[in-house]
Design a protein around this nucleic acid. Structure first.
Lengths: 336, 336
DNA sequence: CTGAAAGCGCTTACAG
DNA sequence: CTGAAAGCGCTTACAG
């Protein structure tokens, strides 16, 4: 029914091999032949069947990006960046929402899409490295996103969260703040975002000679606005509330800002606030949000490049860790 | 290399047909046979090759969702809803970012993914209905999202924007506002969001016996926070600034709120603000944003259902228009 | 239920 | 460059 390669060949008066050569940009084709084939393709409105190509070649030029949720600003922006990065390289990214559910993450690891995808970029929440190692049944290359846990056996791309958290906290110290709270110390699941960023936070306090008060470390249940708002409320009820808060992502910070606004407190005068992620909402919020800004386009581009390298087959090469560059963006929430 | 259907058949001691029957849940298989086959599948860690299946069946169980940008909150939330709706029906959605570029939209229409996808949900920006009609070369079913332009020949899912805009404006009228501005009248490209919502806006003014002041209709260049902020600044410079603003999406409204905050004006006392889309940022903003809230899950679910119906082949059935239910969510930006 | 076989539309050695 | 053919891994009539 649909026009096939052989139809094009017939119309152009060449062999299927020649048509295939033209489509795949192989050399040794005269301009004349190429023109004939291209005319036939245009005439017949022919488009190659990617299922057939993929079946034959064992490659689909599809990669999967498995993230917890795509509606959440950070991951939405990340997904967009991956989508663009993949397109630049002529491949397509398939976005999988795991919703942080173990079953969905397991499906990803089980090599979902039965051979359709060439490789996976995976941002795990509930799956530990060990679980991932055990479960990679697909044999497909996989690159992990997110906090780097020790002893990982996979390629990995991440921000140096300890250093970034250190920088964020030190910035608050430099403003003269002395009771600096942390929100989100329990979050991030097995990927350990909470634990890793807390390490940097504590390190900065110690370096500044500030006491470490466990009452100022809030775990919360998630990494969304509601969690940040609730944690901030809890902090305000303390006998000695904080004069600054480092939130482990921007959504937590935006929630905290909401609580502070409702309480009639001034930011940054009463409480300074720093986030992490640099999502668009924070940039335009009033007050705008000081935050750790990792380069999402760099991240996406390098990750795709690394994955494609693995797909191409440098399987023997050693595991690679990429560290994403970041900056501390100082805005109104810490700088009046 | 990878285990094949025939490997499973060999191990289970049955025919490939039987294995295929088990995998595809066909009837007439004894529990005993099924158990044998499933054991073999588990033993061999077999997963069907979807390229082969897709090539053979002419169906992939993939649909595409083509949207202007996935990082923008509304579309991110919509993408997430489609992703869930598709998963519930056992299919996968491939999200394409057109970035509102004609070339990218054309690629979508050209039946991108060469036969891989079974159908398309398309939210056009630059492509007119006529262009779409002319370009649907893929022969794949297509469902359009967004404002309904007259004379469309495609299945279409949309909010009744005229009525929603009417409701939003009437709500501002009911608060006693008399100089009600509109931001975003020029947006939405060929899909006509700006024009359609302006119709409802004007209708409401007329119904309320209010004069229609062209100076209060702001076009702007896009539908983002920056555009809303700029338009609001222009409105505040008017000799008679407005006492209320209806923004044609939430991002515009959030930008407008930022300008109002910077200007030291009180919302809603000085200026009441209404948005459109009900994105999460608006719900948690301070003040929280009154907005038109369409049911995104309903939209996604019904759209996927309609598309699957078309794919299944009820081609002769008449074109369908689905109207997405919505509510006006009254929050702080209009109700102090 | 089984078994043998065709065919979906490509790519790719192979012989020329 | 061409032409004829095999084969990627499925599904699906077909005959039993």
């Amino acid at each position: 029914m649909a026009t096939r390669l052989s139809d094009v060949a017939a119309r152009a008066g060449v062999s299927v091999k020649t048509v295939s050569n033209v489509i795949n940009d192989y050399p040794h084709i005269t301009a004349h032949t190429r023109a004939k084939v291209e005319a036939a393709i245009a005439d017949l409105d022919y488009r190659p069947n990617v299922s057939a190509r993929s079946l034959r070649k064992g490659r689909s030029d599809f990669i999967a990006l498995a993230i917890p949720e795509m509606a959440s600003a950070y991951f939405a922006e990340l997904g967009a960046a991956f989508s663009r990065a993949a397109k630049r390289r002529g491949i397509t990214v398939l976005i999988e929402q795991t919703e942080g559910e173990p079953a969905a993450e397991q499906m990803v690891l089980d090599g979902m899409r039965g051979q359709l995808i060439d490789g996976i970029v995976f941002s795990p929440i509930t799956s530990s490295q060990a679980k991932i190692s055990a479960a990679v049944g697909s044999g497909k290359p996989i690159v992990l996103l997110g906090e780097r846990t020790t002893g990982g056996t996979f390629d990995h791309v991440a921000v140096d969260s300890v250093q970034a958290a250190y920088d964020a906290t030190t910035h608050l110290v430099s403003l003269g703040r002395r009771r600096i709270a942390a929100i989100g110390v329990g979050g991030g699941g097995a990927s350990g975002t909470g634990a890793v960023r807390r390490r940097g936070y504590r390190k900065a306090l110690k370096a500044a000679g500030l006491p470490h008060d466990p009452a100022l470390e809030l775990a919360g249940t998630g990494y969304h606005r509601l969690d940040g708002a609730a944690s901030m409320r809890a902090l305000l009820e303390l006998p000695e509330p904080p004069d600054a808060v480092f939130c482990f992502n921007d959504l937590l910070a935006l929630g905290a800002l909401r609580t502070l606004a409702d309480a009639g407190l001034s930011v940054p005068d009463d409480v300074a606030v720093v986030g992490f992620d640099d999502i668009e909402d924070g940039r335009y919020h009033s007050p705008s949000l000081t935050t750790i800004s990792a380069d999402k386009d760099w991240l996406a581009d390098q990750t795709v490049a690394l994955l494609l390298e693995r797909i191409a087959g440098s399987g023997e090469a050693a595991r690679r860790n990429l560290t994403v560059p970041y900056t501390l963006e100082i805005r109104e929430s810490t700088a009046g």
